[in-house]
Design a protein around this nucleic acid. Structure first.
Lengths: 204, 204
DNA sequence: GTCTAATGAGTTGTAATTAC
DNA sequence: GTAATTACAACTCATTAGAC
C-alpha cells in the first residue's frame, strides 16, 4: 500500500527525547482502585530512551518489567482510553516516559481488537460485518476517580495567577512529521492536562 | 483498504514558513516536583492567546475540561447568544479567556445549525454502511459512572468565583450502559425533542 | 522464527482563523 | 455576527524492527 502513495519526505528524525520524569513521590492514594500498587518500582527504561538515542534512530524498545505490565494491564482493563491525567499518573508511577505509556495503550487496544476479532473460534453469529469492536468504546473520558473518597474534588483550583503555558507545539506534519516524536512530548510536561470530551454524535 | 486516497486531505495550505525555530523552551518542571504528580488539571490557557495577534503561531488549541464543556453547553442551550456580561461571567467561572468563550459559542452555533440542518438528528437509526469509518469516539457515555455519587454536578468553586450555573440544564447525557445490542450506537445526545431549535438570530 | 514496542500515514472532530 | 477554512490533537491501523 504505502508503496504507491506519494510519499512525503520522510524526514528525519531528529528526535530529542525528552527527559523527564523523575520518580517523584507519588501520592499515596492515587491509583485506581484495587490495582496493584506497585510498590517497588525501580524498573527502568533502557535509558536509551532518554539519554540520547541515536539521532535519527528509532527509539529503543522499552522493556517493561513484569510489574509495569501488570499495572498497565490492570488499568487498561478498567479503562482502555485513559484520560491524559491518567497517562501522567502512570508515567510517574511507573517511571516511564509519557509517550511510552500512550503507545502502550494504543498497542494494547489494537491487540485487544485483533484478538477479539478472530478469537471467536466457532465463528457463530455473524451479526453484522462491521467490526465494531469499538463498541465498547466509551468515549475518551474516564473519570475513574477514586473509589473510596467521596468524590469531592477532582481537581482544580485554578491558579489564576499564572497559568502555565503549554507551549506545546507541533509543526505541520507536512513539513515535518517528526515533530511529535520527540521534542515536546506534547504534554509531557506542563502538568495541565485535563480532559475534554467529545460529545457530539452527529456530524457527518 | 485505503485504496487510493488522495494523499493528504487537507493539509497543505500554505506552507508557511514555519519558523520552527521558535524555541520551545520546554519547561523543565512540569509536574511540580515534590508534589503529587497526579492531577492537577487546571485548565490552562496559552498565553499566546491574547498577547498579540497570531504572530507566528496560532494559539494553541484549548482543551476544555469536561466540566467546562458541560457548563458551556448548558448555557448555550439556554442562550445561544449570550450577552457580553455572560461571556465575562463564564470566563471567570471557567477560568478561560474571554476569546475562547466567544469562539466556543460561535462554533457551537454553527455546529447546532449544521447538524440540525442536514441531520434529522432524531436519531439515526439507519444502517449506515459507511465503509469503514471507524467511528471511534462517538460514544458519549462514560463508563465509569458510579451510581450514586453525587459528584456529578459538583461544580465547586473553581478558585475564584463561586459559581452559579445559571442555567444549567440537563445536559448530561444519559448514561445508560447499553452494552451490546446496539449495532449502531450512535447516540445522540438528545434523543428526542430538544430540538435544536433555538438559534434564532437574535435581536440586536 | 515469534512477539510486540515504535513508527507513520490516514481519519475524524473541533478550536482557532479568515473571509464575508 | 455567520460561513468557510485551517491547524491541531487524538485516535486507528498497518508496518517496521528489536529483543528473545
Amino acid at each position: 500500500n504505502p508503496a504507491l502513495l506519494g510519499q512525503q519526505p520522510q524526514l528525519s528524525p531528529a528526535l530529542l527525547e525528552v527527559a523527564q520524569n523523575q520518580p517523584l513521590t507519588l501520592s499515596p492514594c492515587s491509583l485506581s482502585p484495587g490495582l496493584p500498587a506497585n510498590t517497588s518500582p525501580q524498573p527502568q527504561t533502557t535509558d536509551l530512551h532518554r539519554g540520547e538515542p541515536h539521532r535519527g534512530r528509532r527509539s529503543s524498545r522499552t522493556r517493561f518489567t513484569e510489574q509495569q505490565l501488570e499495572t498497565l494491564q490492570g488499568v487498561f482493563e478498567a479503562t482502555p482510553y485513559p484520560r491524559e491525567e491518567e497517562y501522567d499518573r502512570l508515567s510517574a508511577l511507573l517511571s516511564l516516559p509519557n509517550r511510552v505509556i500512550v503507545v502502550w495503550f494504543q498497542n494494547a487496544r489494537q491487540r485487544a481488537h485483533n484478538s477479539g476479532e478472530d478469537e471467536g473460534q466457532g465463528d457463530s453469529q455473524n451479526e453484522n460485518s462491521m467490526d465494531l469492536t469499538y463498541e465498547y468504546y466509551t468515549h475518551p473520558d474516564s473519570p475513574v476517580l477514586d473509589s473510596s473518597t467521596p468524590c469531592t474534588d477532582s481537581d482544580h483550583l485554578t491558579a489564576k495567577g499564572e497559568q502555565t503555558p503549554p507551549t506545546r507545539k507541533q509543526e505541520d506534519k507536512i513539513i515535518s512529521p517528526q515533530a511529535n516524536t520527540s521534542p515536546a512530548p506534547v504534554h509531557t510536561q506542563n502538568g495541565t492536562s485535563d480532559a475534554d470530551c467529545f460529545l457530539q454524535p452527529c456530524s457527518h
